[in-house]
Amino acid sequence: MAKSISPRAVLGLLLALALLALPPVALSLGEPFYIGLASRMLVFALAAMSLDLILGYGGLVCFGHAAFLGVGAYVVGILGHHAAEQTLLFGILPGTTSGWVTWPLAMLCAGFMAFLIGLVSVRTQGLYFIMITLAFAQMAYFFFVTLKGYGGDDGLSLGQRSTFSDLVSLRDKSTFYYVTLTMAVLVGGGLIKVTRSRFGMVLRGIKENERRMLHIGIPTFRYKVAAFTLAGAVAGLAGALLANQANFVSPAMMHWTRSGELIVMVILGGMGSLLGPAAGAVVFLTLEEVLSAYTEHWQIILGPLLILVVYFARQGLYGMLPRRRADR
């Protein structure tokens, strides 16, 4: 038994090799554009995993997840803006482009916002929860639209990418890709650990039957808020990465259709599996890239495809993978 290599392991090994080999291959083909695209995919993979934590495991249908992404991106954007202009934020804080400061701060701000929104939102149920998360995201969207000091709806160009002392230079596309890959693997791995811990079990329990969890003495409210906060923080990190990838931040990142697309990525990949939604993000962006090169009317294919996935393949792509023996 132990000798036979499972198809899953083979798949994983191939994937890891492909991910590592991508930048040199793209460069040798003279197509550095695809390194940027792959980085973008990894960023959205991370964002989709963070959403899956609350959506797939906790059953919290958050229709405003893009707001956390946007806040993370704006932390990098705004501090970078002050650094470039050599002005002070709130009249006291100097700007910075140091990723040692901005990336954790992006997580902190997005996480704190998620904590506050979570406190209010997770009391509500069903459609009201969907709607109230949407409403908060709309508030954030319009807040940044009207924040003319930082470009408002015109967005804000980043003077330069985040710096990490002299350790790595993100200006180089390949380096940025590997940093993003490392982040996605580390944080994604962390999320997987979380879902397998007691915390993850409780979350799943809440999704199955919240009343039962309450009856056995588990403070479900606190668990839900904690999960929401964690998901927000990870999305904030994805946002900080996205700002660096695009060299540009704008409220369009927080538009409700962006939140919708994140949910689509999760469902497409198969919710409640973390790796599935990550793959879902990659597939979604690939579809966008491939179909839009083939026809600009690619959404006329994506729309019905989505309906079919929801109707027939509730497990998403993940459900189509060969399963581990233990899962059967």
Partner: peptide, 20 residues
């Protein structure tokens, strides 16, 4: 390329045109 009047889409298009 159609920017739809949106800066973020314009940036993506420009990068694609310059790089690819």
């Amino acid at each position: 390329g159609d920017d739809q009047g949106k800066p973020d889409i314009g940036v993506q298009l420009a990068e694609k045109m310059v790089e690819r």
